[in-house]
Design a protein around this nucleic acid. Sequence first.
DNA 1: TCATGTGAAGACATTCACAGCA
DNA 2: TGCTGTGAATGTCTTCACATGA
Lengths: 219, 219
Amino acid sequence: MNKIPEKTIERMILYRRLLLGIQNNETNNIFSHQLAAMAGVTSAQLRKDLTPTGYYGSPVHGYDITQLMDSISEIIDAPQMQNVALAGLGHLGRAVLDYSQGRRPKLQIIAAFDTDPGKINRAIHGCRCYHTDEIEKVIKENNITVGILAVPVDEAQEIADRMVNAGIRGLLNYAPMQLKLPNDVYVENRDMIMAVEKAAYFARQSVKGKEGKVHESLS
Amino acid sequence: MNKIPEKTIERMILYRRLLLGIQNNETNNIFSHQLAAMAGVTSAQLRKDLTPTGYYGSPVHGYDITQLMDSISEIIDAPQMQNVALAGLGHLGRAVLDYSQGRRPKLQIIAAFDTDPGKINRAIHGCRCYHTDEIEKVIKENNITVGILAVPVDEAQEIADRMVNAGIRGLLNYAPMQLKLPNDVYVENRDMIMAVEKAAYFARQSVKGKEGKVHESLS
DNA sequence: TCATGTGAAGACATTCACAGCA
DNA sequence: TGCTGTGAATGTCTTCACATGA
């Protein structure tokens, strides 16, 4: 399997979700320009993105929706189940849990961590909450490889270190700081403060009525 | 002012925050390689990013921390105050509000919208909550140009349309869907579901012990 | 005709490498 | 020496343009 560009992966995830949404409609097929319009990309972009799947559409009928979904899933889903751990059950952690609820069968948040005694040993959406002290134990025992960091900034580095030591290979970081972690661990930063500042900056660049979009940022 | 690359803007926001964190320390100066290390980028990258500021460092003393902060702020801050509106005060909305609290004097969330009667007319962190019906009125009256969308998916498009009609020029979208909006409005998508799937994908690509980072994603 | 897949071109972003300077 | 700013080279991503086939 060749290395697939990061941006392509992001869009594949989007394409699959869009396809899922139009499944069971009257039609079983879709053309590249239709799906591209839903995703907000050009049809050429979409077709190039699909190259790594090896799935070929027909110039006459376009793509078979189900087959295309499956082909994309082969790439972006793990062969077996992938377990996820969530650190921090404040407002943000709860939001993450709510959003992720029942989305992907192959990818589930099976454990959450917090220090609040009122939350420990309770389950939300089928996800059990443990005390932060148990991070290492729970991650190892359940073979969890993906982590979500939703703790306050001042705890973020320590918790991240512990998660990585316990076996986390990919980390989604919501703390507004730059984590120092081994190079072989993937980190996806979702800095909420930066996001607002960025939106504000580009809001100023956006001149009303000017055609040709300011530009848009996926993911 | 020339058009500054999006990635550069993101990193400028990061640089400023890092500089803010080391202000009032024993030293007033910093070298590019030091700040670059904190930001997780190369020193060449940092120096290139600073070009648009017009601020010049000294080969002997590096950069003056305060002056550099100010130079960056001139670019990423609005000349006057920029007002922000937040739609949706569920867990996610609350999290956004908590994080943004007292961060940037020039950028403040001054209004929130929800339909829950228990929240309306209350204030959180000095941000007043209005009923969703008042979106147009409040946005216009307060000259709000930046919006944050933290409502459920099925309401997202309608609320977004109304915000944009009322004057929003830049929108931070947390709903896991592709909004259809005029091209001249800037949209920053922060899809929480995609973020987890992406982290999971790259977690699998990350081979333990392999040098040369998997790669990392800012913002 | 119309939609597909794809090489070639273009746009954008990062890294390299080095001149200049105290 | 050691750090800066920056042109040139490299790398990554997107768009263009067209051959192919029903």
